[in-house]
Design a protein around this nucleic acid. Structure first.
Lengths: 209, 209
DNA sequence: GTCTATACACTGATAGAC
DNA sequence: GTCTATCAGTGTATAGAC
């Protein structure tokens, strides 16, 4: 399907995604979305009544990149180490393809938590099917079996997710200040993270030393 | 000095800080700042000509909480382990007192990188006096001395900072989804982070196992 | 379905009285 | 220094022609 064959609705959706993700809800003008989509401002309202409805559609899609299905990795029958490795590598890969998603989601989550919570709820029916709860249980199991050292499962989970997301959410700091605006070094840095995060975490929690 | 004794300029500054940090530049209305400050809208322009100038003043102040002087810890004559412990503990403490700062800074840095970079530049004269460069050198020294395992200094630095900042920037996710909106558990979680982060990191990079 | 024209509200900023 | 009044510009949304 070529660019011209796309239906107007999809054209609008993609333009809205580009602008909303880059500028956030407050910073986005319907005018600009229309311009990017190459159509008239009124058509936006024809397809999506209000700015909020259009935004919410984008938010849902974006959130699925932010909290990807990767989390289902933990339900597989791989070894714990493999789960951590695949989870972090795949997560970083997804974010490399959608680098602006983290700050967009974090910011909108903060700006309008109630609406965001509702959008998230509508996504999976009910609270991600408690993926984090299952993840916690899995970690506790590993501790009980003596495979990893004692650590609060929630601390480990937040560490894992934070290590993946942070370099993207804080790109201007990491690229600009840590790497003195050397974009090439910043990108190499992210590339290495695919394996570096799992390595860093597993080194911290392994027991046989 | 009581609330009433404050000069108008300071009153405006504090009101602006409250609103800007909560709603960002695009989401903030001069009207609301005036209302929070309990003064007239025109007075804002009398003291700070434009919305941008007022915002920039707030941004500079906020950034000093985001990248606190804690970084100077690394120039002290403490042991490497102690430096990591004090750095992370103090950083988390600062953020506990200013929990909305991280997402505010990250978002504005992303929204208008050029202006933000200039504001940061005006803060310390020139690029933080290359604190991160010194930090990198310190880490490399420890590796060369055989005190910690081999790791790219930049990866370690980003891990350290990310582990401190992320739980604040992603509060709605961590408190809402991981802790199912149990605010008490979320706060206990943050409290424990003061020591947990250093512990987690040092476990990962120590050599004698 | 897509366009032009326009209503209506709001926002940042200024002018001018006190 | 502080206020009221007001302007000019912009933003979302709708009405109506085609």
């Amino acid at each position: 399907m070529s660019e011209e064959d796309k239906g107007t609705e999809e054209l609008i959706f993609e333009a809205a995604q580009t602008v909303f993700v880059q500028k956030g809800f407050d910073g986005t003008r319907m005018e600009e979305i229309a311009r990017v989509a190459g159509i008239n401002k009124s058509l936006l309202h024809y397809y999506y009544r209000t700015k909020e409805k259009l935004f919410n559609a984008i938010f849902k899609k974006a959130f699925s990149y932010f909290m990807p299905k990767v989390l289902s990795t933990i339900s597989s029958d791989l070894s714990f180490d493999e789960k951590i490795k695949i989870f972090t590598a795949t997560y970083v890969e997804v974010l490399l393809k959608n680098p602006h998603i983290p700050i967009f989601i974090l910011n909108e989550l903060n700006r309008n938590p109630d609406n965001a919570a509702q959008m998230i709820g509508e996504l999976t029916g009910i609270a991600q099917n408690d993926t984090f709860g299952k993840f916690s249980a899995l970690i506790q199991e590993e501790i009980d079996k003596g495979n990893i050292r004692s650590i609060e499962p929630e601390q480990l989970i937040v560490n894992l997710i934070g290590l993946c997301i942070f370099p993207f959410a804080a790109r201007p700091i990491v690229q600009g200040i840590v790497f003195k605006n050397d974009k090439k070094r910043y990108n190499e840095f992210l590339e290495k993270r695919k394996t570096e995060i799992a390595n860093f975490v597993l080194q911290s929690i392994k027991i046989e030393k």
